[in-house]
Design a protein around this nucleic acid. Structure first.
Lengths: 183, 183
DNA sequence: GCCTCATATGTCGACTGTGACATATCGGGC
DNA sequence: GCCCGATATGTCACAGTCGACATATGAGGC
């Protein structure tokens, strides 16, 4: 039973075989849009997946001090991924530091509060731009319309990011209007 | 320097003095909408905050085996909260298990994928209902319009939840339409 | 009278996640 | 010729989180 991180790695490898180093980079982007991991998590997790027979590797020429290993999922690994994707999932607790701060917005002056909201808004705008850039690069790809293609799933998750970030921007504008309403 | 959890507790106590037990409940709802903690986290964190002089307590009659302590923030605690609210914050990494699964949606049959999306949609709908219930209970409160009132910050965060969950529902409907489009 | 639930505080071990440390090579710019 | 950054794999210590364990009382239902 791999962890969530293990399934994230299986999801990456199902799209394309990779070395641990490449996986760590792919965990920053595009997967980092909704799940992140550093290389110090990736390497031990790959070893566990291999122990469980869910991935296998061969060695390729590389530039590191240790042998460079290229991993790919086994048939059992793909099965585990398919099972996990549609398995029951508990209601997900939200963990959002920005909203936690906004919840205590009333303790500071409206002026300072508006400054905070501006910064939060900028973060959402930046993310929205990243989503739209990635969506644009998928726009011409006919595979993005086929439900059994990775590009299809990529497009849908990016659409989700776009919709939620747009809503977040709308929310920030609402807050700014209220904080700056003359009183 | 308290942790994020410590600031969350200060934010709760700034609204209303509470016992550790009450704080643990309040961390499930309403704060649990965007940050959760169990009582096993709350008690040690309260002790740390008291060591740092940010909260203080008196003992009140109670039904537990140990003395029941009611905590309130000190002046230093309120200062720490105000400072933290508007402090610089690093871009927040997203960590969303549902989206991580959806990103591997392409490995399963569209039928099964649609089932997953239906369940995700139901979770969003449930949360949206909770936000709207809490918003309704604030609707008649004139304090919810005053930026220096806790009710004001509560209302804004709930509005944010409403907007983002509505966007999530819209997204789920989009995915369902694509997965069930005849081919 | 008894059982159960809510009140109430706390500890402990397991797991996860983060950043720093360690090591070594190849390619490109100065 | 030299330094730097990217490639490449791994370990370790620390902090945060979560569920289980431990304990004890008062209130209400049966």
């Amino acid at each position: 039973m791999p962890s969530d991180l293990g399934h994230a790695l299986l999801g990456l490898l199902a799209r394309r075989p990779s070395t641990g180093y490449e996986l760590a980079r792919r965990m920053q982007r595009p997967v980092g849009f909704f799940w992140t991991a550093g290389h110090s998590q990736v390497y031990p997790e790959l070893a566990r997946l291999e122990d469980d027979g869910l991935v296998e590797h061969d060695e390729v020429p590389g530039r590191g001090p240790l042998p460079t290993k290229r991993y790919r999922p086994t048939a059992a690994g793909l099965d585990a991924l398919r099972t996990w994707v549609v398995a029951d999932l508990a209601p997900q607790p939200v963990r959002d530091l920005e909203v936690l701060r906004l919840w205590s917005l009333w303790v500071v002056e409206p002026e300072a509060a508006a400054g905070l909201v501006e910064r939060v808004r900028a973060g959402h705008a930046e993310r929205l731009a990243a989503y739209e850039a990635d969506l644009a690069s998928l726009a011409g790809d006919p595979a993005a319309l086929e439900p059994d293609s990775p590009a299809f799933a990529s497009r849908l998750t990016l659409e989700g990011g776009r919709l939620t970030r747009r809503a977040a921007l709308e929310w920030c504008d609402l807050m700014l209007a209220e904080l700056r309403r003359p009183r």
